[in-house]
Amino acid sequence: MTTPKVLVLRAAGTNCERETAYAFERFGAEATTLHVNALLADPEALARHHVLAVPGGFSYGDDVGAGAVLATELGTTLAPALGAFVEQGGLVLGICNGFQVLVRLGLLPGLERPLGRPEVSLTDNVSHKYEDRWVRCAITSRRCVFVGEMPEPELPLAHGEGRLVPADESVRRRLFDDDRVVFRYADATGAPTMDYPANPNGATDAIAGLTDATGRVLGLMPHPERALFGFHHPEWTRRKSPGSAPPDLGPGAPIFENACAWVREHR
């Protein structure tokens, strides 16, 4: 059986690469963390992997704009290789800052090809504040291979610029018409909401995560790798008897498990 090979990209200021690599390894993948300088020097490295993960953090300090500098680096040098990677069955996961990079690159939602024109933006939270909190996510499309049959998760997020804004009304409509919306911030009943703090950043239509036309690219603001273990959940001590072990896996784990399973089945 194929061992899923994951390339975890890092740049100055990336800071979730270790746990992101670990989350894939937990499900049998072989994860390699590569500095963007090394990838730009050897774009072929991409084709030797099944999954590209762009982890969270503050690439280049988010100077100029969240993910903008890294997106510029990738866009100027790597756009053809990246396009081919996705066409040929590669998976791409962008978490938080990684999502911001994919959006700025135009890879997500990718309504129009080729890469290069951002169709949505992830910008300042309405609260104008960086916040770390757990949110409930409704799943509005299961077309994305990372999502599969996973239960609607509670996930942690931590960002100051996560408010999704479509370029215009037509993009906004097409996000739904073309089935690009995967995760939406939801209230306690599971219904998408614009109410703070269930929708922590004021994202248009409560959008928390997007996929592309192929369903093989996922970008999301919440951090599934920080919900990998059972003990990550803020209320894990309320859900078990004292002293007993927490569940092994947390609500974010299926995203990595599904990606690895998909690679094993299809590659």
Binding site: N15, C16, R18, E19, Y22, A23, G56, K129, Y130, E131, D132, R133, P156, A158, H223, E225, R226, L228, F229, H232
Partner: peptide, 12 residues
Amino acid sequence: VRQYDHEVQAGS
């Protein structure tokens, strides 16, 4: 506290 990332590194 909410303004601090207290969960990065996945050890929380």
